[in-house]
Amino acid sequence: MASEKITAETRTEFGKGAARRIRRADKVPAVIYGHGNDPVHLTLPGHATWLALKNGGANALLEIEVDGSTQLALTKQVQTDPIRRTLEHIDFVAVRRGEKVTVDVPVTVVGEAGPETLVVTESGTISIEAEATNIPETIEVSVEGAEVGTQISAADVQLPEGSELLTDPEALVVNVTNAPTAAEVEAELEEAEAEAGIERDESDEELAEQAEAESAEGDGDASEDGDADSE
């Protein structure tokens, strides 16, 4: 994974008010921890940082230049505004080239499983140890042609060269099961709605069937009355 270069500024103001002023200037407050050093508080350029995180994924690696020196930093926690989706704050861990780190890498399922199957991702991430400069953005798990009953555990997943699996090897990552029928989906939906206390409005088709049944029942009653009169 290539690192993105970002030029930062040392942050000297703290607190909510200072953080709001930083964000209004299209910048992001951040901090770098690690290697037994005191935390380094920074201000990063908003748009450039957003692009770097987008390109680098969940474990983006940045070369942060501040006050004439450069620090390699691994993204650990990103806080975003839930409404505007803008960056609020970023925590980094200082790393060195060649140093191995522990990270959770997202799982991406690829390929088409066999007919009438449902592919269930049981674990969205896999924990590995890898060199800081060689962390994969994602780990692909292929289900091409997989039949019902196929189970892929962490031990079955192919990791990038130089990476070591930390997740329990027997942990289930992907499970291929029978695809539910339309009737089963409808039954599960009705059960969930009943548990939630939701009353479903009858569809036009259901109302038409009900009206047809009532009409047939009415015709039957009229016929019986006619037979009784004739007697």
Rank of each mutant, 00 (worst) to 15 (best):
S3R: 13
E4L: 11
I6E: 10
T7G: 03
T10E: 12
F14C: 02
G15C: 02
K16Q: 13
A18L: 09
R20P: 02
D26H: 11
P29D: 09
A30V: 05
V31F: 10
I32K: 05
D38L: 11
G46L: 08
L53S: 04
K54N: 06
G57T: 07
A58F: 00
N59Y: 08
A60N: 06
A73H: 01
L74K: 04
T75G: 07
Q77N: 14
Q79L: 13
D81V: 07
P82M: 06
P82T: 01
T86H: 04
T86P: 00
L87W: 09
E88S: 13
H89S: 05
G98A: 03
V101L: 07
V101W: 02
T102V: 14
V103S: 02
D104P: 00
P106W: 09
V107N: 01
T108A: 11
V109A: 04
V109L: 08
V110G: 04
E116K: 13
E116Q: 14
L118G: 00
T121N: 11
T125I: 10
T133R: 06
I135V: 15
P136F: 06
I139W: 05
E140S: 14
E140M: 11
V143M: 03
G145I: 00
G145C: 00
V148L: 06
V148S: 04
T150K: 15
T150F: 01
I152C: 02
S153R: 12
Q158G: 01
P160N: 00
E161D: 13
S163Q: 06
P169C: 02
T177E: 13
A182H: 03
A183H: 02
E188Q: 14
E190Y: 05
E191N: 14
A192Y: 06
E193D: 06
E195H: 04
A196S: 13
I198N: 00
D204A: 15
A211K: 12
S215E: 14
A216I: 08
E217C: 00
G220T: 08
S223Q: 12
D225S: 13
D227S: 13
S230P: 00
